[in-house]
Amino acid sequence: MFIAFSLFPFYMVYISHKPDGEFGLWELRHFIGMAALQAAAQISIGWYILKNRVPQYVILSAVCMALSFQATFGISVVLLANT
């Protein structure tokens, strides 16, 4: 589910896209909100893993989730910069 959730920025880029290629902060408010939400999720999961004893598969899944979030946001930012 988290991997599918990390693809949500692409949807936000699609919604905020104008035909002339201009992007303003008002159009990107959902994209910026998702970035803040996913950053808070990564910090809270990392803090939980740091403070509690968890199995190795939980750590691996958290790392995969964080990498997926970072990759999709990086690709989305590159796509926004090139429009």
Rank of each mutant, 00 (worst) to 15 (best):
P19Q: 02
V63Y: 08
N52G: 02
L7K: 06
V78Y: 11
E27L: 06
Y14Q: 04
L79T: 07
L25P: 04
S6Y: 05
A36S: 08
I75H: 02
L67G: 11
S68T: 13
F31Q: 01
L25K: 04
A81Y: 12
L25D: 06
I49F: 04
A66V: 06
E27I: 04
G24C: 05
G21F: 09
A71F: 10
V78G: 09
S68R: 03
T83P: 08
Y57W: 15
S68P: 11
M1L: 10
M34Q: 14
A40I: 14
F69N: 10
A81N: 12
M1R: 09
M12I: 06
Y14P: 02
L60F: 13
Y48E: 09
K51E: 06
P19M: 06
S76P: 01
P19C: 04
F73A: 01
A40F: 15
T72V: 14
V58K: 00
H30A: 04
G46I: 11
F10H: 15
A41Q: 07
I45V: 07
S6G: 06
A35N: 01
F5S: 12
G46C: 11
L80R: 02
I43K: 09
C64F: 15
I75V: 05
L37G: 15
S76V: 02
F31W: 04
K51L: 05
G21N: 11
W47R: 12
W26I: 15
Y57E: 14
S16V: 02
S61R: 08
K18G: 03
V63F: 10
I45E: 03
M1N: 08
K51T: 04
S76L: 00
G24L: 08
F2W: 12
F69R: 03
I75R: 03
F10Y: 13
I3E: 12
Q56W: 08
I43P: 14
Y11F: 08
Q56E: 15
H30Q: 03
A41H: 10
V54P: 03
P55F: 02
F5A: 13
F2A: 10
G24Y: 15
F73T: 00
A36P: 03
V13R: 05
I3L: 14
A62E: 09
P55R: 03
W47F: 15
A62K: 05
P9Q: 02
V13F: 06
F8I: 13
F5M: 14
G46S: 09
R53I: 01
Y48N: 07
G33M: 07
D20C: 00
A66N: 09
Q70A: 13
L80H: 02
A71E: 10
I15R: 02
H30K: 01
A36V: 12
R29T: 09
I45Y: 05
G46W: 14
Q70G: 13
V58P: 02
I45T: 07
R29G: 05
Q56R: 12
M65P: 08
F31P: 00
V77W: 11
A39K: 07
L7V: 09
A71C: 11
A62P: 08
F10L: 14
H17E: 15
N52C: 05
S68M: 11
I59T: 15
A66P: 05
Y14S: 05
K51G: 01
V58G: 00
D20T: 00
F10R: 12
